[in-house]
Design a protein around this nucleic acid. Sequence first.
DNA 1: TTGAAAGCGCTAACAT
DNA 2: ATGTTAGCGCTTTCAA
Lengths: 351, 351
Amino acid sequence: MPARDAPRGRSASIWDVARAAGVSQQTVSRVINGKTRVSEETRAKVQQVIAELGYRPNRLAQALAGGPVRSVTVLTSDTALYGAAATLRGMEEAARTAGFSVGISVLDRDSPQSDIALRLSRPGEPVMVIAFDDAGRRALHALPPDVPVAAAVERRADDDSNNADDIDDAGGPWQVWLDDRAAAAHATRYLLGLGHRCVHYVAIPSSTSPLPQRTRGWQDALRGAGRPLPEPLQGGWTPRSGFLAVRSLLTDRSVTAILCGNDDLALGVMRAAREAGRDIPGDLSVVGFDDSPPSAYLNPSLTTVRLDFEALGRACFALLHHRLAPRTALAVPAWSEPELIVRESSGPAPA
Amino acid sequence: MPARDAPRGRSASIWDVARAAGVSQQTVSRVINGKTRVSEETRAKVQQVIAELGYRPNRLAQALAGGPVRSVTVLTSDTALYGAAATLRGMEEAARTAGFSVGISVLDRDSPQSDIALRLSRPGEPVMVIAFDDAGRRALHALPPDVPVAAAVERRADDDSNNADDIDDAGGPWQVWLDDRAAAAHATRYLLGLGHRCVHYVAIPSSTSPLPQRTRGWQDALRGAGRPLPEPLQGGWTPRSGFLAVRSLLTDRSVTAILCGNDDLALGVMRAAREAGRDIPGDLSVVGFDDSPPSAYLNPSLTTVRLDFEALGRACFALLHHRLAPRTALAVPAWSEPELIVRESSGPAPA
DNA sequence: TTGAAAGCGCTAACAT
DNA sequence: ATGTTAGCGCTTTCAA
């Protein structure tokens, strides 16, 4: 066994452990990795030395030497948004539980796509993309082909659209999504069921063109009920954008129900309603999307669609994990279907 | 120059570039790192080949070979909380801008401290800790001594406490914090100035013992005004905990002003007030802490203390960066002082 | 200005 | 069951 110096300033390496334990460096490696080909006696001795020296394996070196992949980078575009933040939490938790270290890289609105590869710690580094919006989606497409990737996306893969522009399986089957479309339709039907003649919609910016899933679901329900389709109002991600989007609309008293692309928009809409002298839910019903944490405590509390972002994030990791190390069966944990949570902000249409 | 095979499946390495460019591997390294000792001609040639081959340096190998440190791991305990999430955003942005890759590891409520070192990708990996709460603080203490660390913490280093238990400079000077104490005092004085006899306080869980900064600031102001000090009410992090904490208190009509440890608590408090038939701000003033995004749009909109978490995160990285590579001067970007944002939820004491 | 050699800490393949 | 060897892709010496 080649002699190595004792640690001098630098922290203990696998060689230091090997020398102190009187075994080869390779045996230490076997112990670290839980391989079976080590006698109980030797294993115990090595682990004792590891504890004594405070040895911690260098994951960089492990990865470089071709060890199993134990790291993943998450690309996401705005962690200030509840959906992205919750999805990230789910991904991080699942990855950490599986022994992966998690890198995160936030996409600027206008970060050049050529940068994407440089955010990875090495060629071939596995990646998860939170691609609910356009920045995420562009990043997903800009990823080099040799990168193993799984993504949480907006649209469903089995979309029934005829629009060729909308067909896009660049991510292959390695995608997970929530059924926004059905959820939006369900929420809209709920409002129609309350007697509202029409339901207006304030849209979030979307990654899909021409029509995002939530917008489609809303249209599905209106069409199904034989109602006219008003133009969707274009909002952003913030309460302010919701506020601005509906301000003029609210002067029209025939508008009695508004579905919002997320809870923040709904917050702005409710504010605008208050300033317009509208009563919620007396003469205006407002429904949000996401069930972000404050929603249950707003005044009035917000009727909204609960989406299981955390479980979606966990499932996305499970998908990636399976892609990296296919085991017997692909076991992706299930996530809950979107669920309408009825609270105070919605009620029967005014007489 | 030793011959190497062309890339076969694996992506291009520095050797592939060297061979294709007809230079040594070392010269390619110089070009990558922007060293000056390369002729213009050679540099151009190498860069052209790099582009042709789609070569991307392997950051793992760079780090392993003793290159400059270009990665950092953030330890944080609950990214669902606005303060932690905003601080993380600031850290990530600053780090990415400086060319660092960012790892993130979320601390469980009861993750064993022995785990901490294993979350790092290598011994000596630099770390930032978001230590606003107890989990973060314990992680900060559990970090091995050879780890370069900077932390965003709750308490100020120059605390005037006499309690030895409270003195703790384990993190050394590599800490940044917001002046919670002064801010809480300011908010409390603001309420007293509106004519309120007393101000009650609903506390967030805290990393410092026995008394967290916000609680102290609140007490400072009450003492300064010669008012009695009610027991602080213990809340958690959620609206629900705020709701539960004050429910019984609100039956007492002499309670006219409540300061909350964060905006989520305030949300729950306002809900409880509504259910108790109290009018805000007519007969009850509520003030929050953090200025989280929804606050401006709540009903009523929330008077709160704005804290510049993102800038704090950026400053924390600047500190760490300087620690890793001391340059001429330590230039830590300034962050804003806490600022009271007066909105609709606070007003004069009832007659 | 450029090249060659050594080695970062580890794992895999092949010994024994 | 354990040891030896050869890299992983790069940066640092040191030489030319």
